[in-house]
């Protein structure tokens, strides 16, 4: 698969969902476009959250994201794949991550999109620091996320 079909970016600035949709949705051989957008939620484990700071491991993050996309392409016939993950501080309601996948048919696009976010959450070196009414806390990794990623093991 041509690397130009992959668009993988770690950035501090926000992204535009219409622009990202337009980037991947211009090929008429694709009948399906699936997007996932992750946002900053107002609560976690019962505590109010006011903002979120994302830290990452520059270099390794990009390498892991590329590897995850390679694995998705081995499983499903995909055309375009976009992963944009923000780092830095984000306010309540802001967008954190965009995943976009195109394919001839919907089943491959849905499955690959879910696979990509499940693997990103458990394998890519990002860490969330939540600020809220009880101070700042590093988010704990969730067993449910680990289980979700394990479901994809062959």
């Amino acid at each position: 698969m041509s690397a130009s079909l992959d668009h993988i970016v770690v950035q501090t600035q926000d992204f535009s969902v219409p622009d990202e949709y337009a980037r991947i949705a211009d090929d008429n051989s694709d009948g399906a476009v699936v997007n996932f957008i992750g946002k900053v939620r107002d609560f976690n484990d019962g505590s109010a959250v006011t903002d979120l700071t994302l830290e990452h491991y520059p270099g390794m993050t990009e390498a892991v994201l590329h590897q995850i996309v390679v694995e998705a392409r081995e499983r499903w016939p995909l055309n375009k794949v976009t992963i944009i993950h923000r780092v830095g501080t984000m306010a309540l309601g802001e967008q954190i991550v965009f995943i976009g996948v195109t394919s001839a048919h919907r089943k491959a696009a849905f499955a690959a999109c879910e696979f990509l976010i499940d693997f990103l959450k458990t394998k890519a070196p990002f860490w969330k620091l939540e600020a809220g009414d009880k101070g700042s806390n590093w988010v704990e990794a969730k067993d449910a996320d680990e289980q979700a990623a394990k479901m994809w093991e062959k």
């Binding site: 990103l120 458990t122 394998k123 890519a124 990002f126 860490w127 969330k128 990794a141 996320d145």
Partner: peptide, 23 residues
């Protein structure tokens, strides 16, 4: 990401961190 018995040599980059929580 490596197991604890992975060899480490002069010039390597080794990082220690908690479980990841992105997405």
């Amino acid at each position: 990401i490596s197991s604890w018995d992975t060899p480490v040599e002069d010039g390597d980059e080794v990082a220690f961190f908690p479980p990841v929580t992105g997405g």
